[in-house]
Design a protein around this nucleic acid. Structure first.
Length: 571
RNA sequence: CGGGAUGUAGCGUAGCCUGGUAGCGCGCAUCGUUCGGGACGAUGAGGUCGCCAGUUCGAAUCUGGCCAUCCCGACCA
């Protein structure tokens, strides 16, 4: 491609509303342009990169026998009502105003409607289907460029199996394909255990790229044996040891003490582990004649409650109690709540494993400005349940190997789910087995965010000059820079044609009246791995300069050896 | 959805407090000089100052409403 004909609006200055390197550089290198919040136009250079990622994904999906489809983005409301996801997704779904249609945020339902009349016998299974298609999600807060957009490209795949053993096989195939895809895309990635959220199902795995621009938080062990999304991460519980002093519990006055930090200050202590932190959660009633359920959680003062773990334990959505509810339920405001003397009897108490049978604890008295000391959970709190409900912290140890845990931010580039029968049940996707008995098809679902791969790659591969492409997803292999007219232009044209003959993707900066420095800076910004610089300085000795973008290393080669050297460097 | 900020030429911004000719840098056009790390000089084009209403002789500037964008949080395959 000749740069004189290529539309690539590079920018010298940083756009004012971009903060992360990938966002800044994708705009500055002319890859994308924002149309409105969370919606981007893909410009030629960006599209070339996205297409290369698509090609890798397509090849790896086809390699495991996955069939490519292309489903519509529009989809009837009715279909989504059948699985209950019109409500479950809520505001995240874009709705068409003048038709009962939605813009699909994912495609389980639509694929299932194809499966239903066609996968009817055990002989039809298993099947794996996928598409690479535009998804629409009405994100409340789009951010960080293409990392969280309202319109984006996803590879979504679905497996249909006879039973759970079959699902395990399909899931494993997808997992292996994912590892190949991300490796070929040049990402430094890792996989983590994950929560499945509104997708349903039990087991799920996320593929993560560590980056400050990421929105997920992960716990990673130093010995490399453990990595998990913080939502489901567990650590070795350092039990708060019993002292067995058997002191009676005692109420004491704590004026204006509202938080654990203030309580520690008031008591002049540093170790907050015996200051049991209480929080009240509510499960809203499902029907009119039911009552709300309340849960009081206890964790060590320096820990936090992990609400997603709590939801998993309870098997339902929870919410934090409103301030006016708290008084009603406990008798006190947040800050003076504890496990003893609760006003309402209908409260389930769940304590973290670290507090198992602990004594000499201090917690709220359920009377404003009072706390209780010498609480012995074993002695004083009946019907207490111990569960792992805390958020894993930096320097915690892993459960199995006691390796130190690090907390980091990460970009989720892929997510695979063992869905099970959630959709086949609600949509009636069944087959007849060998014995002529009706069975539910067991499904899996597998997603990759295309643009996120590109953004994650740039997050991991950039410097103060720009992007540093490498490997298969580089938009071009070589950036040929011609520095003058006359003989230099002729030589450059020759090199350009030779490279094209060798099928080497080359971007040729043949622009006239553009000064050298401008071309060099554009080249570093766009970040093609190899630069060939043709200028008078070396051409007078029949030499051509090759610059390696990543290392800034410069290699001088004889004109006649250039193509061979380039072929060698690309390999 | 809650909190905060911003909106002035294609991009980055000053001016707003204290109302009176809309300014600068980059980019763009023409000419000349320059020509291996975002050149220099000269001339020039480009603006409903986010939108609507109000106050005023007069509003980019003051007031109110709306819209948009960004940041923090909530939410979130």
């Amino acid at each position: 491609m000749r740069l004189s004909k290529f539309f690539i609006p590079t920018l010298k200055e940083n756009p004012s509303d971009a903060f992360f390197p990938s966002h800044i550089l994708m705009i500055r290198a002319g890859m994308i342009k924002q149309l409105t919040a969370g919606v981007y136009s893909y410009l030629p250079l960006g599209l070339i990169v996205f297409r290369k990622i698509e090609k890798i994904i397509r090849e790896e999906m086809n390699a495991i026998g996955c069939n490519e489809f292309l489903l519509p983005a529009l989809s009837p409301n009715e279909l989504w009502e059948q699985t209950g996801r019109l409500d479950a997704f809520g505001d995240i779904i874009f709705r068409i105003k003048n038709r009962d249609l939605i813009l699909a945020p994912t495609h389980e339902e639509v694929f299932a409607t194809i499966a239903k009349p066609n996968l009817v016998s055990y002989k039809d299974l298993p099947q794996m289907w996928y598409q690479i298609q535009t998804k629409f999600r009405n994100e409340a807060r789009p951010k960080s460029g293409v990392l969280r957009a309202r319109q984006f490209t996803m590879k979504d795949a679905y497996s249909f199996d006879l039973d759970y053993n079959g699902l395990d096989v399909s899931y494993k195939l997808q997992e292996q394909a994912y590892r190949k895809i991300f490796t070929r895309c040049g990402l430094k990635f890792f996989s983590v255990e994950a929560a499945s959220g509104t997708m349903g199902g039990n087991e799920s795995m996320e593929f993560m790229v560590e980056s400050d621009a990421g929105e997920d938080i992960v716990a990673i062990s130093e010995d490399g044996t453990y990595a998990s999304n913080i939502e489901v991460a567990t650590a070795y519980p350092e039990i708060v040891e019993r002292k067995n002093t058997n002191l009676p519990y005692e109420k004491f006055h704590t004026p204006n003490v509202k938080s654990i930090a203030e309580l520690a200050d008031f008591l002049k202590i540093k170790d907050k582990s015996r200051l049991a932190k209480s929080r009240v959660f509510v499960i809203d009633k499902q029907k009119e004649n039911q009552e709300n359920e309340y849960i009081l959680t206890l964790v060590c003062g320096d820990d936090e409650v992990n609400e997603s773990k709590l939801e998993a334990i309870l098997g339902t959505k929870i919410r934090q109690g409103h301030p006016d509810e708290l008084i009603e339920i406990t008798g006190a405001d947040a800050g003076s709540i504890g496990p003893i003397g609760l006003k309402s009897k209908n409260i389930k108490i769940i304590a973290d494993l670290k507090l198992k049978d602990s004594d000499e604890l201090i917690s709220g008295a359920n009377i404003n400005d009072y706390h209780i000391k010498n609480i012995d959970l074993k002695r004083d709190v009946k019907d207490i349940i111990y569960k792992d409900i805390r958020v894993v912290k930096e320097n915690d140890l892993t459960l199995k190997t006691k390796s130190r845990i690090r907390i980091s931010k990460a970009i989720e580039v892929g997510h695979i789910f063992k869905l099970g029968t959630k959709y086949s049940e609600s949509l009636g996707v069944k087959y007849l087995d060998k014995d002529g008995k009706e069975q539910l098809i067991v499904m899996g679902s597998y997603g990759i965010g295309l643009e996120r791969i590109a953004a994650a790659f740039i997050e991991q591969n950039n410097d103060d000059k720009g992007i540093i492409w490498e490997g298969e997803i580089a938009p071009f292999k070589v950036h040929l820079i011609s520095l003058e007219q006359g003989i230099i232009s002729e030589t450059s044209d020759l090199i350009y044609n030779n490279l094209k003959e060798k099928n080497i993707d080359v971007l040729y900066d043949d622009r006239k009246d553009v000064r050298a420095g401008f071309k060099f800076n554009d080249a570093d910004l766009i970040g093609i791995p190899l630069q060939i610089i043709v200028g008078e300085k070396f051409l007078k000795d029949k030499k051509i300069e090759i610059k390696i973008r990543r290392t800034n290393e410069r290699i001088l080669v004889n004109y006649d050896d250039l193509i061979n050297k380039i072929v060698e460097l690309i390999r």
